[in-house]
């Protein structure tokens, strides 16, 4: 198993080196790109830890969204980090060092690495999630049954948080519908021909893959969050290559705003429906009283659909509002 160790060590070394470089470099363009590398490396580490769903999220969000949103923010501000005066960096160093020391001290109390009787292994909920969930819910991907069924409340909270965040960004940046239509002159089109052809070829497959991730989440890695980001990435690619106005006429803001709310309503509606059927909130067994597993399947499918709709709409709206602000350079 030394080979695995070697791979892990190499990945962590890359991660640490990237982190130090991000802290050192002042050109924020370079920092945005290095943060892309940071995200790619952490996805590799998650894969090595067998946390496939987390790696999936990191892949979709890190590769598709964060870099684009960072750059969108950079386009609105300046591209060089301000020097922090030395008088202020000393207290910051002290706080960071103290926090680090406290964390290292606290890590003494953690159970030893890979030990069999750590609380994670012995807690009854582990048995419930990993063994009993196969009968109770019947979904092969345990992560999905924990996320959408056992912990359905928490996930509902997450969806509401994403919805709220999108509203907050729209309030701060505006919904980006202020600029008029601007045609790209023909020479530009010629120069971007490769990009246009490749984008046209790829976008359908990106959307198709988004659907696969959305509806295959019960069986493999994936689910509504990842699918939503992949869908949004397809639209964002379209906007980047063919122009914001083209994307806005295809996927207009007036559709996205109700969609973002629809996802939350679908999720909450499933909960209310189970209440009406005499169960507790998000008790999917009530959806099919004769066959609880079928009810769980239906509930998880609907709930994930709600997540996917909200995430897609929220991510596209975030991009629109960043991109629609235009040049505000100093």
């Amino acid at each position: 198993m030394t080979g695995w160790m070697l791979i892990d060590i190499a990945l962590f070394a890359i991660l640490v080196a990237t982190g130090i470089a991000i802290a050192q470099i002042r050109q924020l363009f370079a920092v945005a790109m290095l943060s892309g590398i940071f995200s790619l490396t952490s996805a590799c580490i998650f894969v090595m830890q067998d946390a496939v769903d987390v790696a999936f999220t990191e892949a979709a969000v890190g590769a598709g969204m964060t870099t684009v949103l960072f750059l969108g923010a950079l386009a609105l501000t300046r591209t060089r980090e301000k020097e922090t005066p030395r008088t202020r960096s000393l207290p910051a160093l002290l706080v960071a060092a103290a926090t680090g020391a406290a964390l290292v001290y606290a890590s003494q109390d953690l159970p030893a690495f890979g030990i069999a009787d750590s609380p994670v292994q012995t807690h009854p909920v582990t048995e419930r999630y990993l063994v009993t969930s196969a009968e109770e819910i019947g979904v092969p991907n345990v992560v999905t049954s924990v996320l959408a069924s056992y912990r359905g409340y928490d996930t509902f909270g997450e969806v509401v948080v994403i919805f709220t965040a999108a509203i907050a960004v729209l309030m701060l940046l505006g919904h980006g519908a202020t600029r008029g239509v601007e045609e790209v002159p023909p020479p530009m089109r010629d120069r971007q021909r490769v990009l246009r052809v490749v984008a046209k070829l790829l976008i359908p497959y990106i959307l198709l893959f988004g659907l696969y991730v959305q509806f295959h989440g019960d069986y493999g890695p994936g689910g509504g969050f990842q699918a939503g980001v992949i869908f949004a990435a397809g639209v964002i690619l379209y906007a980047l290559v063919f122009g914001l106005d083209a994307a806005r006429s295809g996927v207009p803001m007036r559709v996205l705003r109700p969609l973002a709310a629809t996802g939350v309503v679908v999720y909450g509606g499933v909960g209310v429906a189970t209440l009406m059927l005499g169960g507790s909130f998000l008790d999917y067994n009530r959806l099919a009283p004769d066959d609880p597993a079928a009810g769980q399947h239906l509930g998880i499918l609907l709930v994930e659909l709600g997540v996917g709709i909200t995430v897609t709409a929220a991510m596209i709206m975030l991009f629109y509002s960043f991109a629609g602000r235009g040049v505000r350079r100093s």
Binding site: A59, A63, G64, T67, I230, V241
Partner: peptide, 11 residues
């Protein structure tokens, strides 16, 4: 996923 959407950041 990476193969499909990795280059969006580059674009």
């Amino acid at each position: 996923v990476y193969a499909l959407i990795n280059f969006i950041g580059t674009v």
